[in-house]
């Protein structure tokens, strides 16, 4: 038995591909920052370099120089950014490098490469960086200054509830550059309690896309749960309502409704009884779940 096990282990070991000789992180960083090496070599070395980034100031500066230098191939710069991001996961070790890192990121937000710009702005936005937020807002107010598409800018601004983006988001909801930007603007406004009337209006507007109406329902559930309950009831009783919204309404009532009131609401229960047999599969399922919960 033991021999069989050993033989199995030998065969497994034989089947494994041999790993390339492991480089130290330090030597990987030397290759990654060496402009004489090929792009492929450098990108591969970047993946092994993060541990060496904060070993000393020279390593950090070499890596930051690659990221900042617009003469470098963009693949290498993106790989350098990824390596720096990986290094930043070691929060304590990276704290000493943070200042230089943030300064470099700010220096490249206006880089010619859109992918690099977007990724850098994404990192800064997650840090709730005022500089990045200012750039994003400027781009939304004046498309000529935009560093990323409006929907992306809105998404990045939504990371910080204090980013002062509500007025510009409302403007985009009323005059959207595209449907995706409008959707992202609505998502951003989800944290704004004073936008509840706007979401109520969208929720009840049958000309709106179901996805946008569903966002409105989710926002109202978070900010005005009682208002959503009232709308959900009315939407269920409305036979001309979209199937998706009937299902959303059923879920809202079943999960968050006032059990006592719902169990005694004969008109509503009758309507849900009808829905359980007549409508789409999703509505049927939701209706049956509702009825099983409220005793029919």
């Amino acid at each position: 038995m033991a021999e069989q096990r050993k033989a199995a282990q030998r065969s497994t070991a034989a089947g494994k591909p041999k790993r390339p000789a492991q480089r130290s992180a330090r030597s990987a960083l030397l290759i990654a920052t060496d402009a004489k090496k090929t792009v492929k070599q450098r990108v591969a070395a970047m993946a092994e370099a993060p541990l060496a980034v904060c070993e000393n100031d020279a390593n950090l500066q070499a890596m930051l120089k690659v990221l900042r230098d617009n003469e470098e191939p963009v693949e290498v710069r993106l790989a350098a950014l990824q390596a720096l991001q990986a290094a930043s996961f070691s929060v304590v070790a990276f704290a000493s490098c943070r200042g230089d890192y943030i300064a470099t990121l700010r220096a490249v937000v206006e880089d010619a490469n859109p992918e690099l710009r977007q990724r850098v702005l994404g990192i800064l936005a997650r840090e709730k960086d005022g500089f990045a937020q200012q750039k994003l807002l400027e781009g939304l107010q004046d498309p000529a200054k935009a560093l990323v598409p409006p929907e992306k800018a809105l998404q990045l601004l939504s990371y910080d509830v204090h980013a002062d983006a509500y007025p510009v988001a409302r403007a985009i909801v009323s005059q959207p550059p595209n449907a995706t930007a409008r959707r992202e603007a609505l998502r951003l406004l989800a944290a704004d309690a004073s936008s509840a009337p706007l979401f109520e209006k969208i929720l009840r507007d049958k000309d709106e896309a179901p996805e946008v109406r569903q966002i409105s329902a989710a926002v109202l559930q978070a900010t005005r749960p009682e208002t959503l309950q009232a709308h959900a009831r009315e939407m269920l009783l409305d036979p001309s309502e979209q199937d998706e919204m009937q299902a959303v309404s059923l879920t809202a009532l079943a999960q968050f409704g006032n059990a006592a009131a719902l169990a005694n609401d004969a008109a509503l229960l009758h309507r849900i009884d009808q829905l359980s047999g007549e409508q789409s599969t999703r509505v049927q399922q939701s209706a049956r779940q509702f009825l099983s919960k409220y005793g029919r």
Binding site: R98, A103, A107
Partner: peptide, 24 residues
Amino acid sequence: IRYRDEPVSFEYYGAYAVSSTGTS
């Protein structure tokens, strides 16, 4: 603040530092 140190600029109103040579 030591784990959130970052460069700041006092050069003019609303300035943000884009290099780490200044203060923090």
